[in-house]
Design a protein around this nucleic acid. Structure first.
Length: 215
DNA sequence: ACCCAGGGTCATA
DNA sequence: TATGACCATGGG
């Protein structure tokens, strides 16, 4: 079964996911940093606080004292380190001219720029690439590894870039890649949560049963 | 009480 | 290059 066929199956079963939750590209970027190793429900509380104090803007985040920012984003966990990461990112974001300028960057340059920020790794960068800048980049996360290694598409110990290339090449023939990658990653996350919800042991769960489950 | 969540950095060998 | 420690909240 091709990667596209797996996608079709997931899509038929779960339907459109409407990712990324967020009103603006900048909110998506903030969410991408805050959700690092953290449940999304906790991130929502942090973003709610930022909105409440009118601080969901790159300038506000750069200007507010560290202690204050850390308190606002406290529910998302790792609040000290994430306050620093948000500040690092926003400083870079402002320096590069914010969205109007950055949106004109060539895709590879933009990705390298994001990765140059301390606190933004491959997955966070690709979340931002895909969901804030609408670039055709396939996001790899722990769910993707688990699901597709259980389906024997991969071993699971490949490097991040290797996996990204695997998925991007495997889906290269499709037309609207941004839309496809957008839904695909969201569906993977949805599926992982759905299946892991009905397991007791996740050892046996994911894709062989998953595909059967989806039939 | 324990486990994990939409990761990344840094020190060490 | 490859592990391990560390960051910290909230829900199951």
């Amino acid at each position: 079964m091709s990667l596209k066929q797996v996608y079709d199956r997931l899509y038929k079963h779960y339907g459109p996911q409407h990712w990324w939750p967020g009103d603006t590209p900048f909110e998506v970027m903030v969410g991408a940093v805050l959700t690092q190793n953290t449940a999304w429900t906790n991130v929502e509380k942090a973003i709610y606080n930022l909105k409440l104090y009118d601080a969901l803007s790159p300038h506000a985040i750069v200007e507010v004292p560290h202690e204050q920012l850390a308190q606002w984003i406290r529910p998302s966990g790792y609040f000290n380190i994430k306050a620093r990461r948000l500040r690092n990112f926003c400083q870079w974001y402002i320096e590069q001219g914010e969205y109007p300028q950055l949106s004109q960057w060539e895709t590879n340059e933009l990705r390298e720029g994001l990765l140059s920020v301390n606190g933004v790794g491959p997955e966070t960068a690709d979340d931002i690439m895909l969901y804030a800048f609408a670039r055709p980049v396939f996001v790899i996360d722990a769910y993707t590894r688990r699901i597709f290694s259980r389906l024997d598409y991969i071993t699971g110990d490949e490097g991040y870039e290797e996996l990204r290339e695997f998925f991007e090449k495997g889906l290269a023939r499709n037309r609207d890649k941004v839309q496809l990658f957008n839904e695909y990653h969201a569906l993977i996350v949805m599926h992982a949560k759905d299946i892991c919800k009905m397991k007791p042991s996740c050892d046996d769960c994911c894709l062989k049963k998953v595909c059967l489950y989806l039939e």
